[in-house]
């Protein structure tokens, strides 16, 4: 009798564990939604990154003890307002097409005297690790909020970047035969329950591109567009995309131009 009861209670416990495991996934989704709600009611936590970024922009740093305030983001030295909407673009001083992140690297090198390696180190923050790049990106992006995307893509190098980015978008490879197009080439598709924007269609491209950088509730971090590309290539089973590499900038050029005319509304909040 005693023995059966014990067995029964063990079985009961095991059952409870099983059920707990089964609902664990569901619960974490619920928790995520709760955190999302909390984040929304407090305003966008990305504001903390924006404020830190603005301070970093003005702070004298690096071997040359200089701020970034003279950095030309494409609209002239020191002009931050609207800069995100014209990037990526061609810069004569580097003879390259640059996105925001690569341009910030350029300015950290030329104005502040950092080596390119130092400027590119730690491109993405993580738990307990705050990096300057995320904050600077959040700040500059926030200064374009509410403005329309307006990437020129008219200089020959800009056109070349666009065409190469487009080619990479449709390039299938790796163990799963995936390209960006597999997941972002058709309307109204989803993976599991996550909606997939059709990045070849104007309205979706505008909405998707205009929402990055973003504060990701599930990660508690502000994530840049460079991060977004890096993580999608991981899901694509490709090797690791290097921060501000030529392919990353070409792809950004393709997607940013597809988003032209759309209202830029970032840093946003995402799951």
């Amino acid at each position: 009798m005693k023995r059966t009861r014990r067995t029964a209670s063990v079985l009961c416990l095991l059952g409870a564990f099983g059920a707990a495991a089964a609902i664990a996934q569901q619960r974490s989704a619920v928790e995520e939604i709760e955190r999302y709600r909390a984040a929304l009611s407090d305003g966008n936590p990305a504001e903390l990154w924006e404020a830190r970024g603005e301070a970093l922009w003005k702070e004298k740093r690096g071997p040359k003890n200089a701020s970034l305030e003279r950095c030309d983001l494409g609209l002239g030295p020191g002009i931050v307002k609207g800069a995100y909407t014209v990037l990526p673009r061609y810069f004569a001083d580097t003879d390259k097409v640059e996105d925001l992140e690569s341009r910030l690297v350029t300015c950290m090198v030329s104005l502040q005297g950092l080596t390119p390696e130092q400027a590119k180190k730690d491109p993405f923050g993580g738990p307990g690790k705050k990096v300057p790049m995320d904050a600077l990106v959040a700040y500059v992006a926030s200064e374009s909020r509410g403005m329309k995307m307006n990437v020129a893509a008219s200089h020959p190098k800009e056109r070349e970047a666009y065409e190469l980015g487009k080619t990479i978008f449709f390039y299938r490879g790796g163990t799963h035969d995936f390209g960006c197009v597999t997941c972002h080439g058709a309307d109204a598709k989803r993976i599991r329950l996550q909606d997939l924007p059709n990045l070849t269609a104007t309205a979706d491209a505008q909405r998707a591109y205009g929402g990055w950088p973003a504060y990701r509730v599930s990660q508690g971090e502000v994530r840049s567009f460079q991060w977004r590309l890096n993580d999608c290539f991981r899901q694509q089973r490709f090797p690791e995309l290097e921060f501000v590499s030529p392919a990353s900038i070409a792809l950004t050029m393709y997607l940013a131009k597809n988003a032209n005319g759309g209202v830029f509304d970032a840093p946003s909040i995402k799951r």
Partner: peptide
């Protein structure tokens, strides 16, 4: 263009 894109990708990814 594809050949150019492949060259670009080979210098843009790391193992």
């Amino acid at each position: 263009l594809t050949a150019q894109a492949v060259t670009m990708m080979k210098t843009s990814f790391k193992e």
